[in-house]
Write a protein that binds this DNA or RNA. Structure first.
Lengths: 108, 108
DNA sequence: CGTGTAAGGAATTCTGACACG
DNA sequence: CGTGTAAGGAATTCTGACACG
């Protein structure tokens, strides 16, 4: 039901050069969006960035917004709101789960 | 019905170093299995290998077979047989499709 | 046969900075 | 603000070869 945690799409395995190919963005742009806290690649022991397919998709969205004149700061605010919404939903679900555990529930 | 051609799992985007981490195999092993025609990474313009998640999964299977004493040549024969089987199935389907087109068919 | 390793070179990536605006 | 670029260095990858067995 929830997203598969071992999902390939979320695995950080793509180098910045490939991401650049995939998105059409320059490496400069990709690194800058990280600086502005819009993407969060992992690092190899040697310090190279590794992105997931989800990151790649988000980078394209970010680039589109910027093309529309949205500033990185605003994009970041949107992202924070999104995150909050998801957290609230998760919280609601958890409460629900606790209630179900406490008072029982028929699953079907 | 068929595998999504734009599937992430099949995109060749992973460098050999990451594949090595993911599989636990040495880069030497990974390159050798390519030499023996068991995996087929793509190349960047610069000549670096790029693997897909499917490749990664297959590499693990290959390594397991080798551990069991199977030789690369035999593994390759198995792969060829597999491919033939798939081709036959595809062929059968195509014939079926042609028959359906020729004489009509109720889909449900 | 399958794998480790040292060797030398080429491609990739990194950071900090200057530039334009 | 967002992006290009030249700069110097470090990490990554490549190939062909020798070694063991």
């Amino acid at each position: 039901m929830a997203a598969d945690p071992s999902s390939f799409k979320e695995k950080k395995v793509i180098t910045i050069g490939i991401v650049s190919e995939l998105t059409g963005l320059s490496e400069r742009q990709i690194r800058y969006y990280e600086e502005r806290k819009l993407v969060f690649p992992e690092r190899t022991p040697g310090g190279s960035r590794r992105y997931s397919f989800v990151d790649v998709e988000q980078l394209v969205e970010i680039a589109n917004k910027i093309e529309d004149g949205v500033q990185t700061y605003e994009i970041r605010q949107e992202m924070i709101k999104e995150k909050k919404k998801h957290k609230d939903e998760a919280h609601k679900k958890m409460i629900q789960g606790q209630l179900n555990a406490r008072f029982g529930v028929r699953k079907y």
